[in-house]
């Protein structure tokens, strides 16, 4: 009897403490999620006419939507590959007993804590085909000018994204490396394994959970990139860098079609969830315990 009343009292306290959070997540997460789904079935300038699955069938057949989805997937693939390869290489280097490694670690993290507005504007100034400092400098010393924002725009904005984020993946890999027990490397060294084999047979397999986490995070952030397209390329040249969230933003706030843009954001959410689930499944199969 006594314990029941105590339980009741604690439950009351718990709910009292939780009340602001329950109201907040209901109003600013669950209500909007319900609304975006509801709006995705509607059409018209006020999004008040029932459209059924119309927006979805239209989106799946729309060449502009398909194109922007492919652009986004390509962009994400480049960001994931770069995050893993460059992030791991930097982490391996910085994991060595070198003087000044703390300074490098701090330095490489700075762009990650910098606004996409700074990163975007800075690199647009550097890379601009006419006004950019890179071309003015190359021209001044008689070297051929670069046109990367015209010839390889997607690769270029992926590289800028990596410039910003690779310090973050480096820190994640560094934590993973420091979690591998030294004894494994020692045992292999005694058995005569060289550094190359130790990396492929010990470091990389034992890093699998970190690599998985890095790739999941990179896919999630790559698929919802926005500022790069908005600030650096305005989706161009043509529609070469029309990233999905940028596309959705334009349909919603420039074309003012809330129904159609809502359907596209629900579709993109489903893609992100699917990617994440597949990656986690695949990762769990390859999991190592030690």
């Amino acid at each position: 009897m006594r314990s029941r009343t105590l339980y009741g009292r604690y439950a009351r306290t718990a709910y009292l403490f939780l009340l602001p959070a329950i109201l907040f997540f209901a109003a600013f997460f669950y209500l909007p999620i319900g609304n975006v789904v509801a709006t995705s079935f509607r059409t018209g300038p006020m999004a008040d006419q029932w459209a059924g699955l119309g927006n979805y069938t239209q989106a799946l057949a729309d060449p502009a939507v398909r194109h922007s989805f492919l652009v986004t997937v390509g962009f994400s693939a480049m960001v994931v590959a770069g995050s893993i390869v460059i992030g791991l290489a930097l982490a391996l280097a910085i994991d060595q007993p070198l003087r000044g490694r703390v300074v490098f670690r701090v330095l490489l993290l700075v762009p990650y804590l910098t606004s996409v507005a700074i990163v975007g504007l800075l690199w647009r100034n550097i890379l601009d085909p006419e006004l950019g400092v890179l071309n003015r400098a190359l021209g001044a010393i008689g070297l051929p000018e670069q046109q990367w924002l015209n010839t390889a725009p997607l690769l270029t904005i992926a590289a800028v994204t990596l410039w910003q984020s690779v310090g973050y993946t480096m820190v994640l890999f560094l934590a993973g490396l420091q979690g591998i027990p030294e004894t494994y490397h020692e045992a292999a060294r005694i058995d005569g394994a060289d550094a190359w084999h130790r990396f492929w047979r010990i470091t990389l397999p034992l890093l699998a959970p970190t690599t998985l986490f890095v790739s999941v995070m990179a896919v999630i952030s790559g698929l919802q990139a926005f500022g790069q397209a908005y600030i650096i390329t305005n989706g161009g040249p043509g529609d070469a860098t029309d990233l999905s969230v940028f596309h959705i933003f334009n349909v919603a706030f420039r074309t003012r079609d809330f129904g159609y843009s809502s359907a596209q954001s629900v579709l993109l959410l489903m893609v992100i969830v699917a990617f994440t689930v597949v990656q986690l499944r695949a990762g769990r199969r390859g999991e190592v315990t030690y």
Binding site: L31, I33, I248, A252, I272
Partner: peptide, 21 residues
């Protein structure tokens, strides 16, 4: 679980309904 599920919701999903709200 309902709380942790919100981690799976990127901001762009909330962008349009929050604007309308």
């Amino acid at each position: 679980v309902a709380l942790l599920a919100t981690l799976m919701v990127p901001f762009f999903v909330r962008m349009i309904p929050l604007y309308v709200l």
